[in-house]
Design a protein around this nucleic acid. Structure first.
Lengths: 153, 153
DNA sequence: TATTGTTATACTCTATAACTATA
DNA sequence: TATAGTTATAGAGTATAACAATA
């Protein structure tokens, strides 16, 4: 029975997956997504929403389409996301003066507070996830990842 | 108008996202997911299914639950995935001799062929994605990613 | 005619809870 | 009682196509 119980976490071979970068990216990304959820739990934030806030913070007055382009989110999917953020009082949306088809987006005071609070939480959590990495390794990893061609939509 | 047209891809600041590993993992993972789709297009494979085939290939006779544990897939979600693979003729599923609750999973001949074909395609595509990385950088990236705690389900 | 935002829709992935059959 | 697999269901994320208003 001891042979059956196994009692512990023999990590099981993953075969051809082990040499595929895509697989490791998928798992690592998933792990960080869970960590993100934990970090911002109770705030109502999600990875996508946080990303949108961050881009608008860095580009005040930007419109939905441009935010979507920056983050790889389709226009059609931006609509309800922006609605959520406006309804939550984190985003101000006004018709753009130069182009009345578009909306000019800026963070509200609450939006800034949310962004700052979450950014701090996430940074703390990420430090925890990377506890076993040297500062040099963290920097290397970030720089290598940032170089990957994100030729997404 | 030229100021409006912008004509090109000024890559737009992403603010606080730029220092977050989780963000870069998300984008890189997404880029590789798209590349994967392109690589295996026409085969009917998807990332999850390929992962399952790879794990079963490396552990013949394994059961669903163990595959799920290895890949971070919930038991409930394994069911239809395994069904797909069995229905496609890529997987053989027989009641396990030692435990009649469980199924013993092995690749069929078609399953082996699919796995090998897709693995080759993906490897070729990943090489393309990493064209601007040195062999050393690729190795470093893979090793760093593989060290990230995948404390997932 | 092209672009911004919108609606409707669908598919995949993921998550939970309750069930069955074996152990 | 615990575990392997199942069913049903729900919520995110993402994709496409067609439309209105504006450029």
């Amino acid at each position: 029975m001891a042979s059956k119980l196994q009692m512990s976490r023999k990590p099981l071979a993953i075969g051809k997956l082990s040499s595929l970068l895509g697989y490791h990216l998928r798992r690592a990304s998933g792990a960080f997504a869970l960590d993100f959820q934990e970090a911002v739990s109770g705030t109502g934030m999600r990875q996508v929403l946080f990303g949108i806030l961050a881009v608008i913070d860095a580009n005040p007055g930007i419109n939905q389409g441009a935010v979507g382009t920056a983050l790889g989110i389709k226009r059609a999917n931006m609509v309800s996301l922006i609605n959520e953020l406006v309804d939550s009082g984190l985003l101000a949306r006004v018709v753009a003066a130069e182009d009345r088809r578009a909306f000019s987006l800026t963070l509200t005071e609450a939006g800034h507070a949310m962004l700052d609070d979450c950014a701090a939480r996430i940074a703390r959590h990420e430090a925890g996830m990377l506890a076993e990495f040297t500062a040099d390794e963290r920097r290397t990893l970030l720089q290598l990842l940032a170089r990957i061609r994100t030729s997404k939509a």
